[in-house]
């Protein structure tokens, strides 16, 4: 009987909710879980274990997540979510071209840049049509990304956020999309 790591239940709890476990999480507990999955032999062990219940443990660049074996998901919802992410990433990369895993920022940084960058402002108004103020619109975007575990709040007092390794998931998704070239379109 192979011994499963004692953190298997915790790992399942997080991943089964559709969240990510990133290596650069400021919460020590989550960062530790990453180390557990990442350590020698554990990944295969856990992958086989979870396969038995229909969950596939997937490996990304410094992050892990679950996927299902069978297609059960609503394609429309997936498209909606992907569209939303494309808008978010475009906005954030306009705010800072180096916006990616590891970056620390605060909402006030974004608000400051909004005042001087008309392009950024335009993108935000397209995303946050219903928001009452710029701050609300930005907060909505950030809260949404925090909820899906792509970003985390690491200092409540200073309002500093950290971009987790899982953010690369969205980047990878975008890179995977192939744009048809002229020849294909014929």
């Amino acid at each position: 009987m192979i011994k499963m790591p004692s953190q298997t239940a915790d790992i399942f709890k997080i991943l089964s909710k559709g969240l990510f476990i990133s290596s650069n999480s400021s919460g020590k507990a989550t960062a530790d879980l990453f180390e557990v999955i990442d350590s020698e032999g554990n990944f295969e062990l856990l992958r086989n274990y979870f396969l038995n219940i229909g969950f596939v443990l997937e490996k990304g660049d410094q992050y892990y997540y679950f996927s299902r074996q069978e297609t059960k998901q609503d394609l429309e919802k997936k498209i909606e979510k992907a569209y939303k992410w494309i808008d978010y990433v475009d906005f954030l990369k306009t705010f800072d071209t180096a916006f990616s895993a590891g970056l620390r920022f605060s909402i006030s940084d974004i608000l400051t840049k909004l005042k001087i960058d008309a392009d950024l402002e335009g993108k935000l108004s397209a995303i946050g049509k219903d928001a009452k103020s710029w701050e609300d619109a930005v907060r909505n975007i950030i809260d949404d990304l925090v909820k899906d575990s792509f970003i985390e709040l690491c200092n409540e007092i200073s309002g500093e956020y950290k971009v987790l390794a899982a953010f690369k998931y969205i980047e990878d998704l975008i890179m995977t999309i192939n744009i048809n070239t002229e020849e294909d379109a014929q």
Partner: peptide, 22 residues
């Protein structure tokens, strides 16, 4: 949708993150 393989890519992915809070 028409100019890329966006749909195919999404169809192939069954990642839990697309689920609405299971």
């Amino acid at each position: 949708k028409s100019s890329t393989d966006f749909i195919e890519v999404l169809k192939k992915k069954n990642d839990l993150v697309f689920d609405t809070a299971p």
